[in-house]
Computed example of a mutant assay.
Amino acid sequence: MSRLIVHLLPLMLPFLLYGLYIWHVKRSGKDGPEATPWFWLAAIGMVLMILSFVVYGAFFGETLGDYAPARFEDGRVVPGRIGQ
Rank of each mutant, 00 (worst) to 15 (best):
M1F: 07
M1H: 12
M1K: 05
M1P: 01
S2Y: 08
L4F: 14
L4Q: 10
I5P: 00
I5E: 02
H7N: 00
H7W: 04
L8K: 01
L9D: 03
P10I: 04
P10R: 00
L11C: 10
L11W: 06
L13A: 06
L13F: 02
F15S: 01
L16E: 08
L16D: 02
L17F: 02
Y18R: 12
Y21M: 10
H24L: 10
K26E: 14
K26T: 13
K26G: 05
K26C: 04
R27G: 09
G29Y: 03
G29A: 09
K30Y: 10
E34V: 13
E34C: 03
A35N: 13
A35G: 10
T36V: 12
W38K: 08
F39T: 04
W40A: 10
W40D: 08
W40F: 09
L41D: 00
L41I: 03
L41F: 02
L41C: 07
A42S: 08
A43D: 01
A43F: 13
G45D: 01
V47P: 01
V47Y: 00
V47F: 02
L48A: 10
L51Q: 06
L51F: 14
V54L: 14
Y56E: 15
Y56L: 08
Y56N: 12
A58K: 13
F59D: 08
G61K: 07
G61L: 11
G61I: 13
E62T: 05
E62L: 05
E62I: 07
E62P: 06
E62R: 14
T63Q: 03
L64A: 14
L64Y: 13
L64G: 11
P69D: 09
P69Y: 08
A70K: 14
R71A: 12
R71T: 03
F72R: 01
F72S: 11
G75C: 03
G75D: 02
G75Q: 12
R76L: 09
R76N: 05
V77N: 00
V77Q: 01
V77I: 15
P79G: 08
G80M: 03
G80L: 07
G80Q: 05
R81N: 04
R81M: 09
R81L: 02
I82C: 05
I82T: 14
G83F: 09
G83D: 12
Q84T: 06
Q84M: 08
